[in-house]
């Protein structure tokens, strides 16, 4: 490494630190302060560290709403991911292996689905009609519907790299379509499946807009909605608001640490091919 690269690196790191790291440090500091001290978000260290007290108080707010929210968000995320992986892989598989007018038309619809904004009020009207409005399973189905485009796209291009000889060998051995898919194909999709799970889980866990529309009601609160609900309550308690931000950032942070490579793979898919 040349001196120049070291100098540029040091300058860049200083700039990056100010722009991208200090905001998160402020969250941590403010979440450790007393309400009076936190009233102005500034760069001082807390005079008295009350991190643990703030944590307990935030969790207990509104009758442990945060814990309920964590539970609800987990149910929605896990349910939607299971559906997306199995159903999405089945669609990507058939769309890639069969080239007909029907599959081409459907693939076009998948792409259109990535672009079209969901029609929210008609969706609410429809969910009310089939008794899925304000229900967790309704929310799971919505997240599957909205996540299919990305999932099918990734599976379809990955399946193109799996040789057809494998399917044909399994067909000759007398496997049924379901057996071939679940025993031969699905296990081979593991790398792209991990990518899809990680990227979609973060997206669904962080989703604010759709639960706001389709899942109102205190008993249905999701993690992102807690912030929104607490905002009015914590108006003079910025320390607790920031503690809440901190607490709901932990899952994405863990995923980021352990699955960095898969996230990068998923988020940059398409960058090379266009």
């Amino acid at each position: 490494m040349k001196t120049r690269q070291i100098v540029i690196g040091l300058i860049s790191m200083a700039v990056f630190f100010v722009i991208f790291v200090i905001p998160f440090i402020l969250v941590l500091l403010t979440a450790s302060k007393t309400p009076a001290e936190a009233a102005s978000v500034d760069f001082t260290l807390p005079e008295r560290w009350v991190f643990w007290e703030n944590l307990v108080e935030t969790v207990q707010t509104r009758d442990y709403q945060l814990l309920l929210a964590y539970w609800n968000s987990s149910v929605i995320t896990v349910g939607a991911i299971v559906g997306l992986v199995i159903f999405g892989a089945m669609v990507g598989y058939v769309l890639q292996r069969r080239d007909t007018k029907l599959t081409r038309g459907l693939f076009f619809m998948v792409l259109a689905g990535l672009m079209i904004p969901p029609a929210v009020v008609p969706t609410i009207w429809l969910l009310q009609g089939i008794n899925l409005f304000k229900t967790l399973h309704g929310m799971v189905l919505i997240q599957i519907a909205y996540g299919l485009g990305f999932t099918v796209l990734l599976y379809r291009s990955f399946i193109a790299t799996i040789p057809r000889d494998l399917d044909e060998a399994a067909i000759i051995d007398g496997g049924t379509p379901l057996q071939i898919f679940f025993r031969v194909i699905l296990p081979l999709l593991k790398p792209v499946t991990v990518t899809i799970i990680v990227v979609q889980a973060i997206g669904i866990f962080n989703d604010f807009t759709h639960p706001l529309y389709y899942l109102p009601g205190a008993e249905n609160v999701t993690v992102q909605l807690t912030l929104y609900n607490f905002q009015s309550q914590f108006v003079s308690q910025i320390n607790l608001l920031f503690m809440n931000i901190l607490l709901i950032t932990i899952p994405p942070l863990l995923v980021f640490i352990f699955f960095n490579r898969q996230i990068v793979a998923g988020m940059t898919s398409g960058a090379v091919k266009g």
């Binding site: 559906g83 159903f87 089945m90 769309l95 069969r98 969706t123 429809l126 399917d167 067909i171």
Partner: peptide
């Protein structure tokens, strides 16, 4: 070996809810 009914579960959800 690639039956169209594989498209049904996802297709139904996508059609009805989107």
């Amino acid at each position: 070996p690639y039956p169209y009914w594989f498209l049904l579960p996802a297709g139904t959800i996508f059609f009805v809810l989107f």
